[in-house]
């Protein structure tokens, strides 16, 4: 592999990792940014999406397995999210630390639940044949560099989810309600907007995206009861670097963290790259404590 080839492949790895982090972090950014709720069970909703995809793959539906898996994972996680919001999150409104503890408890229950149902060993979801190959870049002068189709597919999913959310939030009437509640919850209520219902729907979208992310990630790594744990830390990192409640910031942060992580891994081991990544993020937070995009809502300032 040429030097240029190495740069190109690490660039691709960085973008690929960034898209995975984006999928893992988007839902978190929504609930954290709008409701000031730290959902520690977010990683487990990702895990749940992975297992739902695994179940969908065991149904005899032929070529529709992948779309069905993604749909089932998103819908299942969103429904579970609704249950979580109605039974736990809503009851602890305005008590962020209690919410954190309670959702952490839920995450432990979900991990043990998965262990009981599916066993401690991971289950595999094989990508369909049409995603099995890779695109070689030999023809454009980069011998030895190949772009796996599965990773390209995940990048596409992340792009579509991001664009869809951005479109709904900025263009739709409902998105306007969300932005109003985010900027000034009390005023929105005083205009007849049921802010609790806006919360519920946002939480469902956030958890649904987590489920979708879990299903997409199942294509490249086995689903285990603790798979959520390996993503949640990075997801929080991305949300904090991106700035609360901003999709643009979250997307930029996911890409930045992904690229940086891939680039660091060229020079050092994976674990040392993680340490360096954390150091860089801490340094960044010192300079910009509110993240890349600083558009804090009043509700958050007061909290």
């Amino acid at each position: 592999m040429t030097e240029l080839g190495l740069v190109a492949s690490q660039l691709f790895n960085g973008i690929s990792l960034g898209s995975i982090l984006l999928l893992a972090a988007l839902g978190l950014a929504l609930s954290f940014g709008l409701m000031n709720v730290i959902n520690m069970a977010h990683g487990e909703l990702l895990m749940m999406g992975g297992y739902l995809a695994y179940l969908a793959y065991r149904m005899p539906v032929g070529p529709w397995r992948l779309p069905l898996a993604l749909l089932l994972a998103a819908a299942g996680a969103a429904l579970f999210g609704a249950l979580l919001e109605l039974t736990v999150v809503r009851r602890l409104y305005g008590r962020p630390l209690d919410t954190l503890l309670a959702t952490w408890g839920v995450s432990l229950l979900m991990q043990q639940g998965a262990r009981s149902l599916f066993g401690p060993v991971g289950v595999e979801v094989t990508a369909p044949d049409w995603l099995a190959g890779a695109i070689p870049l030999r023809s454009i002068g980069l011998p030895g560099v190949e772009l796996p189709l599965v990773r390209l597919f995940i990048i596409a999913v992340a792009g579509v989810v991001l664009a869809g959310l951005a479109l709904v939030l900025t263009r739709s009437r409902w998105g306007r309600l969300v932005r109003a509640v985010q900027e000034d919850r009390d005023m929105a209520e005083a205009l007849g907007i049921n802010s609790r219902r806006v919360d519920l729907v946002i939480f469902m979208i956030g958890t649904g995206v987590a489920g979708l992310a879990g299903a997409a990630l199942a294509l490249i790594a086995p689903v285990t009861p603790t798979v959520g744990q390996s993503y949640i830390v990075y997801a929080f990192l991305v949300v904090i670097v991106g700035g609360l409640g901003s999709l643009t910031g979250t997307a930029a942060a996911a890409l930045a963290v992904g690229l940086l992580s891939a680039w660091l891994q060229v020079f050092t081991s994976v674990s040392l790259a993680d340490v360096l990544l954390l150091v860089v993020v801490m340094a960044f937070i010192q300079v910009r404590p509110r993240g890349i995009v600083t558009r804090l809502s009043r509700a958050l300032e007061e909290a």
Binding site: R176, A180, M187, L191
Partner: peptide, 26 residues
């Protein structure tokens, strides 16, 4: 309700602010 400090949504346009009031007519 017209609160102290006016409570307009800074990131929305004048028209979007007004249209939010329609939520009360549901």
């Amino acid at each position: 309700y017209v609160p102290q400090g006016r409570g307009v949504f800074q990131h929305l346009t004048v028209e979007e602010n007004l249209e939010l009031g329609l939520a009360a007519l549901r």
